[in-house]
Lab assay of single mutants.
Amino acid sequence: YDEVAAQGEVVRKLKAEKSPKAKINEAVECLLSLKAQYKEKTGKEYIPGQPP
């Protein structure tokens, strides 16, 4: 859960800094992968601010 939240912060920071699109896309792919792992382990969708 904490990893997903941390990666979400990374994506937000990159977007706020107007980073190159390729770098943002890479961070988003990582975030989506973490969300998929979270769902696989818990059986639930990741919802920000609602730990399992």
Rank of each mutant, 00 (worst) to 15 (best):
T42L: 04
A36T: 11
G43Y: 02
A16V: 08
K13A: 01
P48S: 12
E40H: 09
D2I: 12
L34V: 02
L32N: 14
Q7R: 00
K41T: 12
E17K: 10
P48T: 10
E17G: 10
E26G: 03
G8Y: 15
E45M: 07
K13R: 09
E29N: 14
L32G: 10
A36L: 10
V28K: 12
P48C: 05
P52L: 08
A16W: 08
P51A: 08
D2K: 15
N25R: 13
K39D: 02
Y46H: 08
S33G: 12
G8R: 15
E9Q: 09
I24K: 04
A22N: 13
E29S: 09
E40C: 07
Y46E: 04
K39M: 07
E9K: 07
E40Q: 11
L14H: 05
K35R: 09
K39P: 01
L32W: 07
G43R: 04
K13V: 06
I47E: 14
E29P: 01
D2N: 15
G43H: 03
C30F: 13
C30W: 10
N25T: 13
V28G: 06
K41A: 12
V4W: 00
K18F: 04
A16C: 06
E17D: 07
Q50W: 04
E29Q: 13
A36N: 11
L32T: 14
V4G: 00
I47N: 12
Y46M: 04
L14Q: 00
E9T: 04
E26Q: 12
P51V: 11
L31W: 11
P51I: 01
A36F: 04
V4N: 01
A5H: 05
E29A: 12
I47H: 10
C30L: 14
A6N: 09
L34N: 08
V10H: 13
G49F: 10
I47W: 01
K18W: 00
A22T: 10
E40Y: 05
Y46K: 02
Q37R: 11
K39S: 05
D2V: 14
K15I: 06
K41V: 12
Y1S: 10
P51L: 13
P52V: 02
L34K: 10
Y38P: 05
G8V: 14
V10C: 15
T42I: 03
Y1E: 00
L14V: 02
D2T: 15
V28H: 13
Y46I: 01
E17F: 02
Q37I: 10
D2H: 15
K23L: 00
A16P: 02
S33F: 11
K35F: 00
S19R: 01
T42R: 04
C30S: 13
K21M: 13
L34P: 07
E26K: 12
I47C: 13
P51C: 13
R12I: 02
N25C: 03
K41P: 01
P51D: 14
V28I: 14
E26F: 03
L34R: 07
V11A: 07
T42W: 10
D2P: 14
P20Q: 06
E9C: 15
K23S: 00
E17T: 15
